Amino acid sequence: MLAALLYGQEDLRLETVPDPTPQPGEVVMRVGVATTCGTDLKVWRRGGHAKMLTPPTPFGHEAAGQIVALGQGVTGWNLGDRVVANNSAPCMTCFFCHRQEYSLCTDLSFNNGTFAQYLKIPAPIVRHNLLLIPDGLPDAIAAMTEPLACVLHGVARSNVKPGDRVVLFGDGAIGLMFVAALAQRSTEVIVFGGSDSRLHIAKTFGAAKTFNYHQMSDIPAQVKALTDGWGADVVIEATGVPSAWETAIACARPGATVNLFGGCPRNTTITVNTEQLHYNELTLKGVFHNTPEFVRSALAFLARGTVPFELLISDHQPLQNLEHVFQAMKARTVVKVAIGDR
């Protein structure tokens, strides 16, 4: 089969590799659609990921398709089932899993390789995070289950209450999904991003106000002007830029929660004003990945059809054009791209 392998920084190669064969407990899925993700872009540009993969490695982690092979002992699934698989599953036995803190599992079973014709799904994911796609839900939308699950996990950890004024940094796919999820909670979402077209999608998804940061000199001052001089109740940073983490903290009111969601490059640091942190009783949170609960909630959210998530799909391209797709993502001319035969 044809598959994409990441060898290093911006070194992505299409190669012919053997078709996968399922071992006991595993299944093989024919990839209908694999969607690109901002995390994929960061990994491609940086040449690796602190948690999920080490090159050389199969690449891509969002996909939906059909089961074409079942390993020994697999029950409850049939050939031809349309499924979406999360890119990980917790072990269910470690210190953190016993406390239901599944995103901190010390033995998360990650699975990469969705930019391929077939994908083998490990047994832990089959047991805990393989889901049947509801009838009528296109593969390209179902494939977004994993990133939306991460977003729903992020929202749950952000102490958001109805009526809160939430400032969001980032107009990538993750940031726009945050808008959609937060708008469902009757919050006032204020978005700062760098693309007018993406900020238009944010408005469609329920943002109350949007601002292009290229046209602003003092974002914290703008936030205070919008919030009676106090700052936001909740701030969510979804860009993965250390300077943006610092700006996010500066936009928070006393007593606020700041969700530092965007993963920054390895070994980067930020500076925090200790007086502000202490006397303003700020809560700073790093939030990573998802849990089985939110994987199921995400697929259900997509299936409801209440948000036009198809607006996040900027283009459809065959696997052979994957390098071109990542160049377009780097240039920010696309949000997400559906990879696969149409």
Score class of each variant (00 low, 15 high):
residue 247 T to L: 14
residue 218 D to V: 01
residue 155 V to Y: 08
residue 239 T to P: 08
residue 187 T to K: 01
residue 341 D to R: 13
residue 54 T to W: 08
residue 260 L to Y: 10
residue 261 F to M: 13
residue 194 G to H: 09
residue 272 V to S: 12
residue 61 H to W: 15
residue 285 K to N: 10
residue 162 P to S: 05
residue 95 F to Y: 15
residue 328 A to V: 07
residue 137 L to W: 08
residue 101 E to A: 01
residue 11 D to N: 15
residue 235 V to A: 07
residue 290 N to V: 05
residue 131 L to E: 06
residue 157 R to E: 14
residue 289 H to W: 15
residue 181 A to S: 14
residue 340 G to I: 04
residue 38 G to V: 06
residue 244 A to S: 12
residue 122 P to M: 11
residue 75 T to V: 01
residue 19 D to A: 15
residue 247 T to I: 14
residue 93 T to V: 14
residue 133 I to L: 00
residue 152 L to S: 15
residue 93 T to F: 14
residue 21 T to F: 07
residue 4 A to M: 02
residue 202 A to D: 01
residue 172 G to M: 03
residue 159 N to D: 09
residue 41 L to H: 04
residue 46 R to P: 10
residue 77 W to C: 11
residue 72 Q to W: 01
residue 250 A to P: 04
residue 289 H to G: 06
residue 173 A to K: 05
residue 247 T to R: 13
residue 197 S to T: 01
residue 300 A to I: 01
residue 42 K to S: 10
residue 299 L to W: 01
residue 200 H to W: 12
residue 260 L to C: 14
residue 43 V to L: 10
residue 221 A to C: 03
residue 121 I to V: 14
residue 29 M to H: 01
residue 263 G to F: 04
residue 212 N to D: 08
residue 127 R to Y: 12
residue 334 V to Q: 05
residue 172 G to H: 02
residue 254 P to N: 03
residue 24 P to N: 11
residue 327 Q to I: 15
residue 217 S to L: 12
residue 32 G to M: 10
residue 92 M to G: 12
residue 194 G to N: 09
residue 94 C to R: 05
residue 39 T to Y: 10
residue 326 F to C: 00
residue 180 A to K: 03
residue 332 R to L: 11
residue 238 A to I: 04
residue 248 A to V: 02
residue 146 E to F: 11
residue 212 N to T: 08
residue 302 L to T: 12
residue 14 L to K: 08
residue 314 S to R: 02
residue 268 T to P: 03
residue 271 T to E: 13
residue 310 E to C: 01
residue 87 N to R: 09
residue 163 G to Y: 03
residue 135 D to C: 02
residue 185 R to M: 10
